[in-house]
Design a protein around this nucleic acid. Sequence first.
DNA 1: TTGACGGCTGAATCTCGAG
DNA 2: TCTCGAGATTCAGCCGTCA
Lengths: 367, 367
Amino acid sequence: MSGAVMMELPLDQVLRGDCVEMMRTLPDASIDCVFADPPYNLQLRGELRRPDDSIVDGVDDDWDKFADLKAYDAFTRAWLGEARRVLRKDGTIWVIGSYHNIFRIGAILQDLGFWILNDVIWRKSNPMPNFRGRRFTNAHETLIWAARGPDSRYRFNYQAMKALNDDVQMRSDWYLPLCTGGERLRNEHGLKLHPTQKPESLLHRVLVASTNVDDVVLDPFAGTGTTTAMARRLRRRFIGIERHPDYAEAAIGRARREKPVPLDSVLTTPARRESPRVPFGLLVERGMVPAGTVLMDRQKRVRATVSPDGTLVSGRNRGSIHKMGATLTNAPSCNGWTFWYFERGDTMVQLDELRGEIRAEQSAVAS
Amino acid sequence: MSGAVMMELPLDQVLRGDCVEMMRTLPDASIDCVFADPPYNLQLRGELRRPDDSIVDGVDDDWDKFADLKAYDAFTRAWLGEARRVLRKDGTIWVIGSYHNIFRIGAILQDLGFWILNDVIWRKSNPMPNFRGRRFTNAHETLIWAARGPDSRYRFNYQAMKALNDDVQMRSDWYLPLCTGGERLRNEHGLKLHPTQKPESLLHRVLVASTNVDDVVLDPFAGTGTTTAMARRLRRRFIGIERHPDYAEAAIGRARREKPVPLDSVLTTPARRESPRVPFGLLVERGMVPAGTVLMDRQKRVRATVSPDGTLVSGRNRGSIHKMGATLTNAPSCNGWTFWYFERGDTMVQLDELRGEIRAEQSAVAS
DNA sequence: TTGACGGCTGAATCTCGAG
DNA sequence: TCTCGAGATTCAGCCGTCA
């Protein structure tokens, strides 16, 4: 990323205004990742009551109303076109929607030249039931993940996703709860500030999967700022755009309150292609970290013992160095190489130092 | 369904030929349910294929890709248009696809006037892993379920779906295995006969959810005949269309080998509306709830007295059990059968229990 | 303190047959 | 085709109250 481009970007801000107009002020190819939660065009007809006769608080806001499908398509083409322009060659875009709008968005994405990488299903653990018994419970939303074009060398943190998923490949269906309880932003009357606030866990997975530290993330429909807050927490740079002044203000305050996590905890497992993968088991086999070695984090708050197969054991827990680091610290993910240390004399040795030695060896042999 | 129309339909057959041409021979509004698994080999293996399976000249410019999407859209509009014509007013359509084609199909469905009821996610219990580690494991396919139009009184066997799912509403995400093992049709060399044979469990759920016994099910891309075989097993009528002679032959033999299950075993949990109607007055006439009985809600917050004509009276208000339940609770509507109770000794008896007794009697007499 | 219980709520295209 | 009225219809999770 060139310094000149970075200087021009309104980084770590939530801009107030129309997303198409505001995107027009951004330079070409300046964004690493777009996350967009556009209006769904729900087209609700009349009120809906629960069996107990209480009224369902549906999304009837003006911003979700469009004259017809043609108008929605035109709107979609406009903002997706700008999003593609500002996206870097190897950047990716995420768009979330429901069956009301996601097919139109997917088709237009393809028409504009985007290359779909996955459709991802957010399976809601606690969806609203179908109160009249006339359809299946609408228990999911769909995210489309797409590269700028078919030849994009896009970022996908495969190992981080695998580590997040108990060391098996992350699937295209994600089971996550709705944004409720303390996470939900509320006004002074205790009412929800925004009708469709997305859960932080969803954005956590999106950003960890497809961006790197210091990448620039753009959210053209920032709303109350889940994307921008999570970007800040995960040490990504962000640009939010939001038209509604109340939402924009909430998003700005929310980002300001967010504390970035320590840098070493967001460095995810490196992708294999960037450097030769070293299995931790190799260090055990070679006696660099013999089975029975007690590992600990730098602050010596948690400990685990090395098994002969390269897994770590602590109490009844067993798993990879990454999984155990995450488990013992209640973190969603962990880079075991940088997390774990052992004592050698009166100094602490990080696992990653040993990995570096092996890589140096291997590259010497290879060259 | 009129007898005349039924006579013209090629029922319980698999027709060999192009699906659009063959559908043109079917009369308007003659089909209760369409299930379609259209081709979606759009851009596999780096080569572009047209819907008719011919390979597109390997030019890699944007214009050619656009032309290919256009061709796929035209093909999709053609067969979906015919499907809509042959569909009865209250019929529904299912289309299954992956991210390669499902967005185009969904958008065209909407453009043609279909009304999407749900998108359903088939979560594969045993998907193929992503070997290159460059994407999420593509672990699902998407089905769109749509009515012919927004005001359709379509069939949805809600109670049957609920019963299938341990008595909680069936969600829009279904976890089912791939078609493997003995279910998979193979040729004389033991190779799979069809690359994308769908599992019987998927069609079982689709047909039980959205069709009734003797309904006519059309599959315009019958392939090796999972839809037609399951329709026969579940005592639905079927029309399959398949262009490839080997597939059509396999589908015909498969349907012939299929044994319809006994009639009483395909009768699923009936919708409550489909049970014989019991007027409340009958309970009064028969002395089960004599005139003068005082009814109350379960919390005993409101009361009303039964009149000899089956109406309830409370102060100056008089009306049906439903209307009075609504009036006395200021609700817009009320199901009087489940709302009202009366005291028998020290227990509370719900009116709906008595209705159940009468229905049990009536069905015993009928059989 | 804790558990039982009731209230509230979430991106929702949410009735149907008789006359 | 329209009107009328019977009557069908909810799951998971959080929070506050009260015993």
